[in-house]
Computed example of a mutant assay.
Amino acid sequence: MATKLTERQQQILDIIRSEIQRTGFPPTRAEIARSLGFKSANAAEDHLKALARKGAIELTAGASRGIRLVGEPAASAPPPSPSLLEQLLLPIVGRVAAGSPILAAEHVEREIGVEPALFSQTPDYLLRVRGLSMRDAGILDGDLLAVKKTAEARNGQIVVARIGDEVTVKRLSKSGSQIQLLPENPDFSPILVSAGDDFSLEGIAVGLIRTTPLH
């Protein structure tokens, strides 16, 4: 990197790198602000813009986690192939009917082309977020959550999970054999997964596309 970073900018860069390695997902401005004791996310935004000007990161307008490290491959991402140099065509999944596969034809609203560089790993589909249970992670009602299909996830990752007849987006918390699905909004309660519950992981979140402007 040609331009020297300030100590604070290097701290923020380290936080971004660490969060991508830990969850596969860049932090939000609010998460960076909390980590460094800033009073508002605007202070984090100012530092991010400075990092972008210095060529350390790239910022994507309209994506709450639209931060990409420059000159480093995304964590766990496969090497780019010629097909990834073009836009990805991803289905948008709306409401999921009880007991039906997420990618069943009746759930797909349409397909859209997106830039692969927006995501930490290549997603399989975009899930339209319902409700505000993940508000404090920067995931809002109506946003499109980029999801990579997998039945395995690490502790702390944001996941799409099926419990009973419901499909939900939450942060995964594993302690021994106990699994909890944690909201990112104090108005919502954690979901404790019991041994007898019909529970499965449908995928992990690898990015976000904001569909409405932040106020």
Rank of each mutant, 00 (worst) to 15 (best):
T3W: 15
L5W: 09
R8L: 08
Q10Y: 04
Q11C: 03
I15Y: 10
R17G: 09
S18E: 11
A30K: 00
A33W: 02
A33P: 04
S40L: 10
N42M: 09
A43Q: 12
A43D: 03
E45K: 07
E45W: 06
H47W: 08
A52T: 07
A52N: 04
R53A: 15
R53M: 11
A56I: 15
A61S: 15
A63E: 08
R65D: 13
G66P: 00
G66N: 00
G71E: 03
S76Q: 15
S100L: 04
L103C: 06
E106S: 10
H107P: 06
V108E: 11
E109P: 02
E109S: 10
E111A: 04
E111F: 11
E111S: 11
I112F: 09
E115I: 07
P116A: 15
F119P: 00
Q121H: 07
Y125E: 05
L126Q: 13
L126H: 06
L126I: 10
L126S: 07
G131L: 12
D141Y: 12
G142K: 04
L145I: 11
L145C: 14
V147N: 00
A153Y: 01
I158P: 07
R162Y: 02
D165M: 13
D165V: 05
V169N: 08
L172R: 02
S173I: 06
K174V: 15
Q180K: 13
L182A: 12
N185L: 08
N185E: 10
D187C: 07
P190L: 04
V193N: 14
S194R: 11
S200W: 10
L201I: 10
L201P: 01
E202Q: 06
A205Y: 05
V206E: 03
V206A: 00
V206K: 00
L208P: 01
T211C: 14
T211R: 12
T211L: 10
